[in-house]
């Protein structure tokens, strides 16, 4: 399984880290690495989450993360490519 890095923009409010961490825990997804930091907007924070998941499970992680009301956007950072995959507030299933 390849490592995937998700850049998650969240509301800068109490309890958001617990929501994200809790979601990973209860759905039995493993977090490889996690960092949280500020963004240029004081109302939001940026989480970088590295996971060892692929395909269907990775899609589920993103879909479930996206359901958290405090999660604003999810971008998958691809190591070797310039263009990141942008997951807006609703995943696009239409291809």
């Amino acid at each position: 399984m390849a490592q995937h890095t998700l850049e998650v923009i969240v509301e800068n409010s109490p309890g958001v880290l617990a929501r994200v961490a809790g979601l990973f825990a209860r759905r039995a997804y493993n977090i490889e690495r996690l960092s949280v930091g500020p963004t240029s907007n004081p109302e939001t924070s940026k989480m970088e989450i590295v996971v060892n998941l692929d395909g269907h499970v990775l899609e589920q992680v993103i879909a479930q993360l996206d359901k958290l009301v405090n999660v604003i956007s999810i971008i998958e950072i691809l190591p070797d490519e310039v263009q990141p995959i942008v997951h807006d507030t609703q995943p696009d299933y239409q291809n």
Partner: peptide, 17 residues
Amino acid sequence: VDPAEIGKNRFADVPVL
């Protein structure tokens, strides 16, 4: 209406969100 349900347990050939 819930994107996380589509494909969760069973692959959807045609997802309709």
